[in-house]
């Protein structure tokens, strides 16, 4: 049996961007809502654009046609209080990275609204 792939962890430069899927439920009248930004186990999963295209990010969804893709500037994320972006590659996804979100719920809601302003839709629904 082949060994699982292990990718080295790299530092993500501020000049780079990350892609994130946005489920159709988070759109209202074509506009993306801040509800799309939420942590699972304290972090939000994204794909580093060095190792993923926006189309590849979309195709990683369980149901790709239900998802759009947004892009977020890494430097922009790091300007938000307490937020960081860390490369966390997985055996099946070298691009996998995480945006750490604040534990404090008041800081968390501020971070979500600021991430919403930062997001650019790069692959619309459909």
């Amino acid at each position: 049996m082949a060994d699982a792939l292990v990718f080295p962890i790299e530092e993500i430069p501020n000049a780079d961007s990350v892609f994130m899927r946005a489920h159709k439920t988070h759109f209202r009248g074509g506009d993306l809502e801040p509800s799309v930004f939420k942590a699972q186990d304290g972090a939000m999963s994204v794909d580093w654009d060095k190792y993923s295209t926006k189309e590849e990010t979309k195709q990683r969804a369980k149901k790709p046609t239900d998802n759009a893709v947004v892009s977020l500037s890494v430097g922009g994320i790091r300007k938000i209080k307490d937020l960081n972006v860390i490369h966390t590659p997985e055996p099946t996804n070298k691009a996998h990275s995480e945006v750490n979100l604040p534990d404090n719920r008041v800081d968390y809601i501020e971070a979500r609204l600021r991430l919403h302003r930062l997001a650019e839709i790069v692959l619309p629904l459909g």
């Binding site: 439920t25 988070h26 209202r28 809502e33 801040p34 509800s35 939420k38 942590a39 809601i109 979500r112 609204l113």
Partner: peptide, 23 residues
Amino acid sequence: PRIGPGPEGSIDLHWKEKTWELL
């Protein structure tokens, strides 16, 4: 506001106006 699906079963109420925003 727009009423939306927040994290972990919570509900978001989002106002986006020309001169202010509130979540």
